[in-house]
Design a protein around this nucleic acid. Structure first.
Length: 894
RNA sequence: GGGCGAUUAGCUCAGCUGGCUAGAGCGUUCGAUUCACAUUCGAAAGGUCACUGGUUCGAAUCCAGUAUCGCCCACCA
């Protein structure tokens, strides 16, 4: 017998172990079933489960379990991410704490990498266990890691292929250099911080120029202004001027360029092409010299003269002081708000620098797509625009297009060690691109590694490539893709479910890489050259106050593992999913989770009740065949609940197929609690029909399983038919139209309305429970109906006894009254069919529209006689009036 | 500066292509209680659907404008 309250702690781990051991998570690449695939966005291998993960795991598990039950070959590939910069930083910090002052120098590349690898392996088990805690039904036999050898091979092959196609190039570009982490960071990894900093205006020969960064100004020998700026019309482009500057006299050149905003400051500026992206662009346009002022360590170079070697923060006030001493400081604005670029990871101040970096060219038309030569950017646009990939919610397509339109070449090299190393070898002037060094001595591999999103961008298919094929150097990328059984069966994936915050970081890059790679395989049908068919973007989880949960402020954090321990994984899953609509942030707080814990417990007790009823009636639910009962034993209430269960099945199935996960969850919640427990189980306390009870409960367990896998599986063991296996492998119920019994359902609704009315009147009139009540019914049909349900009404409305008298109807649409002195309106008849009325309305609308069109036409051509127009006007007015009446009636419909 | 979105009950939110008396959960108030469940049951109060116009027989829903808030992108020397 079941315990009085559901205890998730004693159930969840046992159930999960049972599933895993039984092989229920494993997908079969050889089955004939249609595939349904999700690649799990890999959490950091060294990470801890947070709410973001929990939401993603719950959503994906619901989809996977639903499709598995639907009869699809459902595959959910789990994995972890090597998280390049983040992981390297963690280990560097640990090493420094151990007393290793300069880990890179002391351990060397190989030494440091093996330390990091060991650390990663050690911590992987944590996240693996935590993913299991959520109930995730992923296929652990296919677990992958973004930095495993097979994936490294694929990364190298893709790099080489793109290089050969001229899509990867090396060039000097302004990059975001982080002097603290000693690496470049991508545009997307920058956080802008507002700060007030002094804004200086200096005399620069005849000009006044302003800056918040005097320390970059040593090398400024170009003064730029807008070509149309009349104030500077006297100065010609290319003209040189001798002037006194920080470290003595220099010769400045006048440049006219439209990039300068004449309304800002003095309308002219000097440029520092090495340390500013806009300046770099101007310098490129005019072929100007570029000079480095600040070193990669963040200190001034010898060009700074006496300031050389100083850190920029320290040098700044001294430089200002010197210029002031020379009488060149014209003004200082102390209230200038400046936006400073800092690195998202590590927090160092970004110093733009020119570096030799590897880039992916997104503009070059070098990819064959639909028989055309297109750029990566164009393809990225095309697949969304054309609908090869759908984004849920659709509104994010606009954001996506906007981003694509402004997309620049992607800088893929990083100056860290932990990551896929750039597969390029150098020897003197020779360059070789490939997985391994070419034969011969003296080849040196590029020291840089690739942006972590480069390997992540391959994730949907790199995880499906057979590692044995990847390990064979003779196999080409093409072989690996076409010969891996999992790629053939499961790619493209069905859904990419992730937070909207990484739409650009990751989703867009998967589209870029996958379309590129598959564009090389003519035998793959066009629509299969995408990484996924649907992108489902969930929102961020916020605190009750709407704040972002952050590690730095522990009071805002909700730890999903704590919540699982207290309330159970099922409750947490429901609390996160219900109320979460795609693309919108949700607020989560403990009371909400507690509410769903109550719900899970409610289901538990409902099952307990059903089992008790079975026992009372000496029936073993396990030997009960599903859905078998004798027609004559089925009362109207049974027919009604059966109808409701079929309707529910239909709704839930549809909602899940349309990715309306919150709706479906809410609907299940309401059905279980309000319809099944508070209504049908209450009725069943009188006369129970165990066959129907068990049938409906089994139906609930199936429909609810994707949301609450643990409790439903546990209850299933008690209630399943003898020949059935685990619930997670059961089939999804199909709504049976022939079982739908709207009439029975409506009639019971009437009975319920009557019960509610009696209760309300009792409360209003202060009539105690248990008193006899006389009801007057103005309809023979309903008098009969209520007479049949007298026992239920008496019990549910807590009436001592009930007399039902029939009187002739006062109105055509019979209303009924309870208690001699009080009239209650009960909607007794479903005489009006809203669908038919709508149809009539539509016909009238069409008629009105045609009349209007004719009238408009007649008025315009002035050919119709006035009498005809008048007649039409009358007709139109009549039609409109009728329309209004029908609309009103329709509005009044219940 | 460019773009996207939001504004519905005290709080958190539903409300799909215009059509039930605008809903749910939590909270509040009142009442119940050995009978599956106090992690319960019944009921009540609570809304100018941000504002102003427009389209329509009919608008929370569509259109325009206003206000407030949020997010993304770019970034001014």
């Amino acid at each position: 017998m079941l315990s009085k309250a559901y205890d998730p702690g004693s159930v969840e781990d046992r159930i999960y172990a049972m599933w895993e051991k039984s092989g229920a998570f494993r997908a079969d690449a050889t089955s004939g079933k249609p595939p349904f695939t999700i690649s799990m966005p890999p959490p950091n291998a060294t990470g801890q489960l947070h709410l973001g993960h929990a939401v993603m795991l719950a959503l994906q598990d619901i989809l996977i379990r639903f499709h598995r039950m639907l009869g699809d070959e459902a595959l959910w590939v789990p994995g972890t991410d090597h998280a390049a910069i983040a992981t390297e930083n963690v280990v560097l910090k640990l090493l420094r704490a151990e007393g290793v002052k300069d880990p890179r120098a002391e351990l060397g590349r190989e030494g440091l990498l093996s330390r990091i690898a060991a650390y990663v392996e050690k911590s992987k088990d944590t996240i693996r266990g935590q993913i299991r805690k959520m109930g995730s039904s992923c296929d652990w036999s296919r677990e992958r890691y973004t930095f495993e050898p097979a994936l490294n091979r694929l990364v190298n092959e893709v790099f080489a292929s793109m290089y050969e196609d001229g899509l990867i190039y090396r060039g000097h570009r302004i990059v975001n250099w982080d002097p603290k982490l000693q690496t470049t960071v991508s545009d997307d990894e920058i956080v802008w911080i507002e700060e007030v900093s002094p804004f200086y205006t200096f005399q620069y020969g005849p000009f006044r120029i302003s800056t918040s960064r005097p320390e970059t100004k040593f090398g400024d020998k170009y003064v730029v202004m807008h070509p149309d700026d009349k104030r500077y019309a006297a100065y010609k482009h290319g003209q040189t001027i001798e002037l006194e500057w920080i470290n003595g006299p220099i010769r400045a050149t006048v440049i006219k360029d439209a990039a300068v905003d004449p309304t800002f400051g003095t309308g002219c500026m000097t440029i520092t092409p090495w340390h500013d992206a806009v300046d770099f662009a101007i310098a490129e346009r005019h072929g100007l010299e570029k000079e480095q002022i600040i070193g990669f360590d963040g200190r001034l170079l010898p060009i700074a003269g006496e300031f050389a070697g100083m850190a920029i923060d320290a040098a700044r006030p001294l430089i200002v002081e010197k210029l002031k001493g020379k009488g060149l400081l014209a003004a200082v604005d102390g209230h200038y708000v400046h936006r400073k670029a800092t690195a998202q990871r590590g927090g160092g101040t970004i110093e733009p620098q020119i570096k030799l970096q590897w880039f992916i060219d997104v503009h070059k038309k070098a990819v064959s797509w639909k028989g055309e030569s297109m750029s990566l950017k164009e393809i990225m646009h095309e697949v969304i625009h054309h609908g090869d990939i759908a984004i849920v919610p659709d509104s994010f397509s606009k954001t996506y297009f906007h981003w694509i339109d402004n997309l620049r070449d992607w800088c893929i090299s990083r100056q860290i060690w932990w990551g896929h190393r750039v597969p390029v070898w150098y020897r003197g002037d020779e360059t070789f691109v490939g997985s391994t060094a070419p034969a011969g001595k003296g080849w040196e591999q590029d020291p840089d590694t690739l942006d972590t999103w480069f390997s992540s961008a391959l994730w949907t298919w790199s995880t499906l490539v057979d590692p044995a094929l990847a390990a064979d150097p003779k196999r080409t990328l093409r072989d690996m893709l076409l010969q891996s059984p999992d790629v053939r069966k499961f790619h493209p994936t069905s859904v990419m479910e992730t937070g909207y915050d990484i739409l650009f970081f990751w989703v867009a890059r998967m589209i870029l890489m996958t379309t590129y790679v598959f564009s090389k395989l003519p035998e793959v049908p066009h629509e299969q050259k995408v990484p996924f068919r649907t992108v489902y973007l969930h929102g961020l989880v916020r605190t009750r106050e709407g704040k972002k949960m952050s590690k730095s402020d522990p009071t805002t954090m909700i730890d999903p593992l704590d919540m699982i321990a207290t309330y159970g994984a099922d409750a947490l899953r429901l609390a996160m999913i219900v109320g979460q609509s795609p693309g919108n942030d949700t607020k989560l707080y403990e009371e909400k989770i507690a509410g769903y814990r109550n719900f899970v417990n409610k289901l538990w007790n409902a099952s307990r009740f059903v089992l008790m009823k079975c026992e009372e009636m000496k029936i073993d639910p396990q030997v009960m065949e599903d859905g078998r009962w004798k027609t004559e034993e089925v009362a109207m209430a049974d027919r009604a609940i059966l109808h409701a269960a079929e309707k529910l099945t239909e709704d839930i199935t549809m909602s899940l197929q349309e990715y309306r996960l919150s709706d479906a969850g809410e609907r299940l919640y309401a059905f279980v609690w309000d319809t099944f427990c508070d209504w049908y189980l209450e009725l069943s306390k009188g006369t129970a029909n165990p066959a129907v009870l068990v049938h409906v409960l089994r139906r609930i367990l199936r429909l609810l399983h994707p949301y609450c896998p643990f409790v439903t599986e546990e209850l299933w063991a008690q209630l399943k038919p003898a020949d059935a296996g685990v619930l997670m492998r059961e089939s999804w119920p199909a709504a049976k139209k022939e079982r739908m019994d709207q009439a029975a359902y409506d009639q019971l609704q009437t009975v319920i309305d009557v019960i509610t009315a009696i209760r309300r009147i009792r409360a209003e009139q202060g009539i105690e429970a248990g008193k006899k009540i006389d009801a007057v019914i103005h309809s023979k049909k309903h008098a009969t109906l209520l007479e049949q349900h007298r026992d239920h009404i008496v019990r549910m409305a807590k009436v001592g006894d009930l007399t039902i008298d029939e009187k002739p109807a006062a109105h055509a649409n019979a209303a009924s009254a309870f208690l001699p002195e009080v009239e209650i309106h009960v909607p007794l008849d479903g005489l009006v069919d809203p669908a038919a009325m709508k149809k009539e309305l539509q016909e009238l609308q069409a008629y009105v529209a045609s009349l209007e069109a004719k009238l408009g036409n007649a008025g315009f051509t002035a050919k119709a006689p006035a009498s005809v127009v008048g007649e039409m006007r009358t007709k139109l007015a009549e039609a409109r009036e009728k329309l209004g009446k029908i609309g009103e009636r329709l509005s009044g419909l219940r």
